[in-house]
Structures are given as structure tokens and as C-alpha cells.
Design a protein around this nucleic acid. Structure first.
Length: 821
DNA sequence: GAGCCCTTCACGAGC
DNA sequence: TGAAGGGCTC
């Protein structure tokens, strides 16, 4: 991200060797099947690789790049490869380097957002920004929108910040701005007028703050290319080979960006163009008039980001958009067993709007898929923990196991049990490090230095730590800045002119002094470039001399201790950054921190089980995968029912989850799930019915938990030692035996009803069963045991029981299958 | 301006 | 269940 475009100094003679005589890239094709070979070697203006899950697409993409370089068809600097996450970018770079060595230096392999930041930093001056612009993450932009909604009294029209943010984001992904939207909106509707005002004001505020939000990074780059063709030409000449991974998840703005980059160059060939102080030289004989060659890889069955504007048509209409495109279909799967693939194929086959495609493998059926129905989410979690343990004992690394769920909130129950079961785990997502208040505060300090125009950042730190600067003073400063025509930040330097009390004046002066001092360290006024270690130094000054750390250390709040530790961690991150980026600047650091995602933090070597949402799971693979919460209202999610294409997208999401598994796949659900602190009944997901029954080996099926009679699964359950309930009445046959299969089409309401008669009208209720420490009880699954203690109250009373054979368990008294002896 | 308590609302996925 | 925001008092 930090290295500038480097002039190319390759000898012209060997620059463009042919790809023929004895193929210099022959070794790159080793082990590839015929379609894969095609995908690597085809040359032409456009190539679409439809890559089913696990069909070796990363391998194909990296070999294609390596082949282009090896045959001298392209210089590294002429290659732009777009991946979905920074982590994927890093991996791809590494793999290309493994294939061809250091000559891979100079390629751009990055996400859309990172690539656009690089371009924008170079070109920002062209349209009213400076290169030190900041990037607003969704939290920042939410905060700004919140202020604007209030200001424009948007709540009177029912506007919530979240809704406004969502609408603006959607519009930006469609490349609409406030003016163009206003032109086609019904402006006689006062609500529409207010929305347009907020939108326009939001955009003005961003511009004034010298900031872009996530969506702007893409949209403004497109705007830049369209408004300044000579700027676009620089990049069109530079990038001769553009490769885009996960093409099915591109939105319209990203599509437009690719379109702009692959246009033929209009300017004359071979000229060097100076841009942002950086010279870009082109090889002399490059055929400049043609558009860049475009390779996209995708799988419409794995499109799961429609909610953020991904347009599946980008891939389905690729051949129309890029005439002469070659299409290669990769269907052979090298990842999963046939059982897993058959299940995945069966599920995705229920989507009607897709081209038929069947994954297959030659590795054999493998183990059956294991199904489990827990009584509660804790029961389900216990099952997962038990199986994880069993796999570990069979020699499977923790790092090779993953647990997926639909919503982040589901991770709690899993965590609880994992901690108790001493299973090492790592959560991707959830409350993210960079979203913590203290981290955002610290970053706001850095932003205030890096981009003083960013008023949001300066306002944020104004009274952190408490300096006695409240709303009134803040408004006074803002008004003063407006009157004098200076920025909010500069107003701080004139504290004495504000007409506020001496105490507050002093507080403002002190804040100003700290910012100035840190600025001298990280952005010396002498103009020399500060070393990358200056970020650490500057951050320490900011946190130390502002009194921020002292305030936390002196606080009585026990949480503040953890906050200090988090800040230490952030300082450690800056050190790490300096090590990895010897030429990195403060801006580079802030960019990196803003654009990292949770998936990027993934550390496969950490030796722990990975917990993540199904969305995060995309692009990853594990030997053993647990898909949890396979219930109606979770997957498909309740909210998706009301969205066009919602259930279809949910099915694709489930498909993505299934196809992450290499050898073992576990599907689990719970019959009751607590939300908002209340327990409600859950129903098995309709997707479960879509899997042929013989593929799933139910350890405990929904029928077991709900129907009558039989001992079989109870015995199974007891032997396994699940906790918290399990099958009350046991239950004989397999899940599928008494189910009516659905016709192979979406039947949202009907399928639920089919299951509904499997669900008891109400959950077992032990009512006012009184238990106390010392009581002996009998549990349907665990046998007899002694109550150690009872915690909680009313319906939430929990018995801590030491079972004679099954060991210690916690049971929710109200619903557990127990009797007092 | 700060601290406290109360009510309310949310739990859909992310660069 | 938990966080966040509003309103009250000092």
C-alpha cells in the first residue's frame, strides 16, 4: 500500500517473449485439469471463470498471473488483481511469489477499497480533497448522519440514522449523488425533500472534512475517472491485465470502476504522465489503444452480498457486457467429500434463478453429515464442544475446525460452553477491536493530527478526557470557526478569542499544544518525512500528554483497566506497522487500520477453533465445519423473508457454509432459543429438508426431541454426554422417516407448517419444581445426580448438578427433563 | 458540566 | 440481555 509506482526498467528486448516454444510456463500447468488449464492459458480481451466452490480458483488465478509474468506478456506493474479481503490479497501475492519469485514485485493485489485509496491519495487534489483525507468507517458516518438527521429534524419523518445511512449507501453503490437522486425523486413529498437535504448536507460535510466514506472510495474514484479522462488514462495505460475475484459480489459502482479501467486508452501512446508528483513510465511498444484484458472469477451460487448492493447481473450478463468473452466452467471440486457436495448441490438446486451446475469430486463419499438437535442453544453448543473434543482426540487440529452461525449474537452460547470445556477458540467478528470507544478515541487523536480538517475527529476528542469542555463550549468554538472562516481545529489555537472562561481557555490551549507537539513528531513542519516509528511516538505523546491514559488509570471503573490494556495493544499495533512498513506514514497507518476486516485478522496457525458468521466464512475452508442454528428465522433469517430475493440469498449463504467443509460436516440446531432474555421455540430450517435424508446421520433429530417414546437417541445422547436437556422422550427413527418432502421449489410458508406439527405446542414446563442444594434428581439423559446449588430466579432458575456418571452439568430447571427423587 | 437513574430499543450480514 | 440516550439533580 505504501510503495509508489516505480518506473519500469526492463530491457526492451526480452520484454515480450512469445508464449510458444516449449511453453516457459509449462510447469505452472502441472496438475491442472483441462478447464483449469484453459483458464490459465486463455488470452483475449475478456475471460469469465465460473468457479464452483472448492474448484481451485485461487490456484488458477495465481497461476494465470504467474504465467503472464513468466511469459513476459506483462510486467508486474501492469497487473491489477482485486480480491475480496486484504487477507486474500496477501495470500495471493505470496502464492504468486512462490511461483515466480521476486519478479512479482510491483503488482497491485488488493481489495477494491485499498486500490481506490491508493488512487485517490495520488489524485485527490484534482477535485477538492487533499492527499491526507480520512476514511470514515460505518460508525463514523453513522455519527455524522445522526447529527444531520437531528439538525434537519428528520425524525419527524420517521428517519433513523441507520435507515438514512442505508439508503445513502445504496444510492452511492448505484453511483447516484444527492443531485441526481433529487432529479428523479418525488420532491413534492416533504419526507423526500428532507432526505435529499440530509444526503446533500452529508456529502458537503464529508468534503469539508476532507473525508470519504467506504462507498465514496469506489464511487468517487469512478467519478474521478469520468470527470478527468486524462487521469483515468494513466491507470488504463498502466494496468494491462485486470483480474477480479469474487465477481458475483461486486456492486454497480465496482462494476463501473472495472469498466472505466478496461476502456481503450484515448490519449497518445508512450507518454509519461506526471500525477501527484509520481512519474509513470510505460514500456515503449505497448499497444496503448486496446483496453486492458479482463479476467473475472465468480460463482453466482455464492453471491451473498446483495444486501450491500452486490448485483448478480454483473456476472450473469458478463458475456453481454464484454463481447467476445470466453467462459470457462470449473466444476470439479478438490475440497469436499461427495456427501458434502451432494448435500450442497441439493440445497442450491432449490434456487430457481440459476444456471445448473453440479459440483463433483473423485475423492469418494466420505463420512456422513452429522445432525444434532439440541434442546437449547447451550445443549447445541455442548454438542459442538463434545464433537470438537472428539475430533481433537482423533488428531484433527483445532485450527482445522470452524463453527459458523448466522448472527453474531449466537456466538455467546458457544463461547460460554467452550470456555467451560476448555476448547481454545477465536472469534472472528463480533465486538471488534477497532470499534471500541477507547480505540476510536485514540484514532481520533491521530486523525486530528493527520487531517485537521476532519471536524468530527476533533470534536470527538474535545472533551476526552474530561476537560470541562461541554456542548456549550463546543458550539461556541464551532460558531467562532464559522465566523472567522477557519476550521474547527484552527479555532482551538485561538482559545483566548472565544470569550469563554479562563479555565476552559486553558484546557483548549493544552489540547492544542498536545496536537501541535504530536504533529511535529509525525508530520514535521520542516517537510522531512518522519520515520514510520514516529506513529508510535506520536501516539504515546497524544495519549500521555492529553491526560487520556491518566484519566483511565485513576478511574474506579474496573473496565477502564481493560481499556488501558487495549490502548497498549494499539501502541503495539503501531510498532508492528513500523516493522512491516519501514516507509509507512501516519496516513498509511490510518488507512490500513480503517480497511482491515475481521477476516483479515485470521491467524490459522493460532491453534484454536474459529468461530465466525457464515458471511465471514466465505473463501475459507476447514477439515471440520459446524453449521449451527440451522433454524427457521435464523437461516433463512427472519428479515430476509420480506426482501426480494431474500430467501434465495439465504440459501446461497447456507450453501457457502456447507461447501467450506473438507471432510466433516455437522449441522445443528436447537429447539428453543433465548432472545431478549426470553426463551422461544425454534423450528428446523427449511433448508434441512432440502438435503436428501440419507446423507444426514442424526445423532438426535428434531423428532427425537419432540415426539414420543423410544430410548435410542437418549442412550446415544447420554453416552456422548451432552448437557442441558437433550431428548426428553428419546425417539426412534431418523428424522426423515416421517417427514413429508417438499416440492423442489421455494415454499416459505408451507415448509414451516410441515415442521410445525413436529413442534410441541409448548415447551416442557416443570412449573414450580423446587430444588435445593443436596436434592437428588433423575435426568432423562444423564441419569441420577445430586444438586450442588441453584442460581437464578423464577423461570431462569438453574440447577448445578453433579451426575453420578455424566459429571457436572447446569440445567434450566423450568424445561430440563428432570424429576426430583 | 457531571453523574446518576430510568426507559427504550435492538439482534442481519461488512469493506 | 445489554447498550445507549434522555432527563433529572447536584
Amino acid at each position: 500500500m505504501t510503495e509508489p509506482l516505480k518506473p519500469i526498467v526492463l530491457g526492451a528486448a526480452d520484454a515480450r517473449g512469445g508464449a510458444s516454444d516449449g511453453r516457459p510456463d509449462e510447469d505452472l500447468l502441472a496438475g491442472l485439469n483441462p478447464p483449469q488449464r484453459d483458464a490459465v492459458t486463455h488470452r483475449g480481451p475478456a475471460l469469465l471463470i465460473i468457479a464452483g466452490a472448492g474448484s481451485g480458483k485461487t490456484s488458477v488465478l495465481t497461476r494465470r498471473i504467474a504465467s503472464l509474468l513468466r511469459t513476459h506478456e506483462a510486467y508486474p506493474s501492469q497487473i491489477l488483481a482485486i480480491t475480496f479481503t486484504n487477507k486474500a490479497a496477501g495470500e495471493m501475492r505470496e502464492r504468486v511469489q512462490q511461483l515466480i519469485g521476486d519478479s512479482a514485485q510491483g503488482m497491485w493485489i488488493s481489495t477494491f477499497h485499498s486500490a481506490c485509496v491508493r488512487i485517490l491519495r495520488r489524485e485527490a487534489q484534482q477535485f477538492g480533497f487533499t492527499k491526507s483525507f480520512t476514511i470514515y468507517d460505518s460508525g463514523d458516518s453513522r455519527a455524522l448522519i445522526k447529527r444531520l438527521v437531528k439538525q434537519h429534524e428528520g425524525d419527524a419523518f420517521g428517519f433513523t440514522p441507520a435507515a438514512v445511512q442505508g439508503r445513502i449507501s445504496k444510492l452511492k453503490n448505484e453511483l447516484a449523488d444527492a443531485e441526481s437522486y433529487a432529479r428523479q425523486a418525488n420532491m413534492s413529498d416533504p419526507a423526500e425533500r428532507v432526505f435529499v437535504e440530509i444526503f446533500a448536507d452529508y456529502q458537503r460535510s464529508l468534503q469539508k472534512a476532507n473525508a470519504f466514506d467506504f462507498d465514496d472510495l469506489i464511487a468517487q474514484t469512478v467519478y474521478l475517472f469520468r470527470a478527468f479522462p486524462h487521469v483515468a488514462d494513466v491507470y488504463r495505460k498502466r494496468f494491462r491485465h485486470i483480474l477480479v475475484d469474487e465477481y458475483q459480489d461486486t456492486n454497480h459502482a465496482q462494476y463501473a470502476l472495472i469498466h472505466e479501467l478496461t476502456r481503450p486508452v484515448v490519449g497518445k501512446a508512450g507518454d509519461a504522465f506526471s500525477s501527484g508528483g509520481m512519474m509513470i513510465f510505460e514500456p515503449d511498444e505497448a499497444p496503448e489503444t486496446e483496453g486492458a484484458s479482463l479476467t473475472v472469477v465468480g460463482d453466482s451460487d455464492q453471491s451473498i452480498y446483495a444486501f450491500r448492493g452486490a448485483d448478480i447481473r454483473n456476472i450473469s450478463e458478463f458475456e453481454r457486457d464484454f463481447p467476445g468473452a470466453k467462459v470457462v466452467l470449473l466444476e470439479q471440486n478438490y475440497r469436499s467429500t461427495q456427501n458434502i457436495l451432494s448435500a450442497a448441490n441439493a440445497v442450491i438446486g432449490h434456487n430457481f434463478d440459476r444456471k445448473d451446475k453440479k459440483l463433483w469430486t473423485d475423492v469418494g463419499d466420505g463420512d456422513p453429515i452429522i445432525g444434532f438437535t439440541g434442546y437449547s442453544q447451550h445443549d447445541e453448543a455442548q454438542f459442538v464442544a463434545d464433537e470438537v473434543d472428539a475430533l481433537r482426540r482423533k488428531g484433527v487440529d483445532y485450527a482445522q475446525m470452524a463453527v459458523f452461525y448466522r448472527t453474531n449474537s449466537q456466538s455467546r452460547a458457544l463461547e460460554e460452553i467452550f470456555i467451560r470445556a476448555a476448547v481454545p477458540y477465536k472469534i472472528m467478528g463480533g465486538t471488534k477491536f477497532y470499534e471500541r470507544a477507547e480505540i476510536k478515541d485514540a484514532l481520533a487523536y491521530l486523525v486530528a493530527v493527520a487531517n485537521p480538517a476532519d471536524e468530527m475527529a476533533v470534536r470527538r476528542i474535545l472533551n476526552k478526557p474530561r476537560r470541562g469542555i461541554g456542548d456549550v463550549t463546543e458550539t461556541t468554538i464551532a460558531r467562532y470557526a464559522a465566523d472567522e472562516g477557519i476550521t474547527f481545529r484552527d479555532a482551538l489555537a485561538n482559545g483566548s478569542a472565544l470569550g469563554v472562561g479562563p479555565r476552559i481557555q486553558q484546557a483548549i490551549a493544552q489540547l492544542d499544544a498536545v496536537l501541535v507537539e504530536a504533529s511535529e513528531i509525525m508530520l514535521p513542519s520542516s517537510g522531512e518525512i518522519a520515520p514510520s516509528t514516529s506513529v508510535t511516538e506520536g501516539l504515546n505523546v497524544l495519549l500521555g500528554k492529553s491526560g487520556y491514559l491518566d484519566a483511565l488509570r485513576m478511574s474506579k471503573d474496573p473496565q477502564d483497566e481493560a481499556r488501558v490494556e487495549n490502548l497498549d495493544e494499539l501502541v503495539a499495533v503501531t510498532r508492528e506497522f513500523a516493522r512491516n512498513n519501514p516507509e509507512g506514514t501516519l496516513l498509511d497507518f490510518l488507512t490500513e487500520v480503517t480497511l482491515v476486516s475481521d477476516a483479515d485478522d485470521l491467524d490459522d496457525a493460532s491453534g484454536s477453533v474459529s468461530l465466525m458468521t457464515m458471511h465471514t466464512a466465505k473463501g475459507l475452508e476447514y477439515d471440520a465445519v459446524f453449521v449451527t442454528g440451522v433454524e427457521e428465522d435464523l437461516i433463512p433469517h427472519r428479515i430476509s423473508a420480506g426482501e426480494p430475493g431474500g430467501p434465495q440469498e439465504e440459501r446461497r449463504l447456507f450453501y457457502v457454509a456447507l461447501t467450506r467443509a473438507r471432510k466433516r460436516l455437522f449441522l445443528s440446531l436447537a429447539m428453543t432459543r433465548a432472545q431478549f432474555g426470553e426463551v422461544s421455540a425454534a423450528m428446523p430450517s427449511r433448508f434441512l429438508q432440502e438435503i436428501p435424508h440419507h446423507l444426514i446421520d442424526w445423532r438426535q433429530s428434531p423428532g427425537d426431541v419432540n415426539s414420543r417414546g423410544g430410548m435410542q437417541s437418549r442412550a446415544l445422547n447420554a453416552r456422548r454426554g451432552g448437557s442441558g436437556g437433550g431428548s426428553r422422550f428419546g425417539g426412534g427413527g431418523r428424522y426423515g422417516d416421517d417427514l413429508v418432502p417438499l416440492p423442489p421449489r421455494d415454499r416459505p410458508a408451507g415448509s414451516i407448517e410441515k415442521f410445525a406439527n413436529r413442534i410441541p405446542a409448548k415447551i416442557r414446563d416443570n412449573g414450580d419444581l423446587e430444588l435445593a442444594a443436596g436434592d437428588r434428581i433423575r435426568h432423562d439423559d444423564f441419569g441420577e445426580g445430586k444438586v450442588d446449588m441453584v442460581t437464578g430466579e423464577g423461570a431462569k432458575r438453574v440447577a448445578h448438578v453433579r451426575f453420578d456418571t455424566a459429571g457436572p452439568k447446569k440445567l434450566l430447571i423450568k424445561v430440563a427433563p428432570i424429576t426430583k427423587l
